[in-house]
Simulated scan of single mutants.
Amino acid sequence: MNSNIKIVRSLMQELRRVSQTKNTKENAMLHYVMEQAHAHKETSEVLCKAREELKNLAEMYLCYLKSQRACKDIHKQYAGKGERSIKETADLVGFKLPHDPK
């Protein structure tokens, strides 16, 4: 049960990061996630679904949201900004130029 709470909290945190509305009371995504979490408190055998279906679904969405955020960060860091100098390019990939002190 404790791991389920951690997953839901992490999912809510990621949804807040991608949300355009800062007011959590008006956020429809957060309301939906909380409704689903409360609706599936009962054992999933009552609903005739796989035992860990909601947990697996929440983990997949959490992984998706984290991956999207990481992709945006990487794109922002390495996106083309026109021509770069040789030094900037070397610094970007972690190399040192021959005339730089080692």
Rank of each mutant, 00 (worst) to 15 (best):
K66W: 03
A37L: 00
K22T: 13
Y64Q: 15
S19Q: 06
Y32G: 01
D73V: 00
I5R: 14
K25T: 13
S44G: 04
S67W: 05
L97Q: 06
N4M: 07
K87E: 10
Q77L: 12
K25D: 14
S67E: 14
A79W: 06
T89Y: 11
Q77E: 15
A58N: 07
I7V: 15
E35S: 08
D100Y: 06
N27A: 01
E59I: 01
H75V: 08
A37M: 02
R16Q: 08
E42Q: 10
K22I: 05
Q13H: 12
N2V: 15
K25S: 15
E88K: 11
A37W: 02
C48S: 13
K72D: 09
L92H: 07
E26G: 01
I7Y: 09
V18Y: 02
E42F: 00
C71W: 05
Y64E: 15
I86V: 14
T21D: 07
G82L: 08
C63K: 14
K55L: 14
L65A: 11
T24S: 06
E59M: 07
M60D: 09
D91Q: 09
A70N: 07
K41D: 04
K81M: 11
M29K: 03
I74L: 15
H75N: 08
Q20W: 11
A58M: 10
Q13N: 13
Y78N: 05
K76Q: 15
E88R: 09
L11M: 09
H40Y: 12
R16T: 06
A39M: 11
L57V: 07
V93H: 09
R17H: 10
F95Q: 10
I5C: 02
A39F: 12
I86H: 03
K55I: 08
V18M: 03
L57Y: 01
R16E: 09
H99F: 13
L65F: 12
P101S: 11
L47F: 15
H38N: 12
E53H: 03
V93A: 07
K96T: 08
Y32I: 05
E14P: 02
Q36V: 15
R84W: 00
A39H: 10
K81S: 11
D73A: 04
E14F: 02
E88D: 08
S85R: 08
G82Q: 02
R69C: 04
H40D: 05
L97I: 02
E88V: 01
T24H: 02
E88A: 06
I86K: 12
L47A: 14
P98C: 06
L97A: 02
Q13T: 14
L47Y: 15
A50H: 06
N23S: 04
D91G: 01
A37K: 00
A90F: 04
A28H: 06
K22N: 11
S10Q: 13
L30W: 02
T89A: 08
L30N: 03
Q68E: 04
H38T: 13
H31L: 06
K87C: 00
M12A: 08
M34C: 03
M12G: 03
S85F: 01
L62E: 12
L54N: 04
T21I: 11
G82V: 02
Q13D: 13
T89Q: 10
S85L: 02
L65G: 11
P101L: 11
H75K: 12
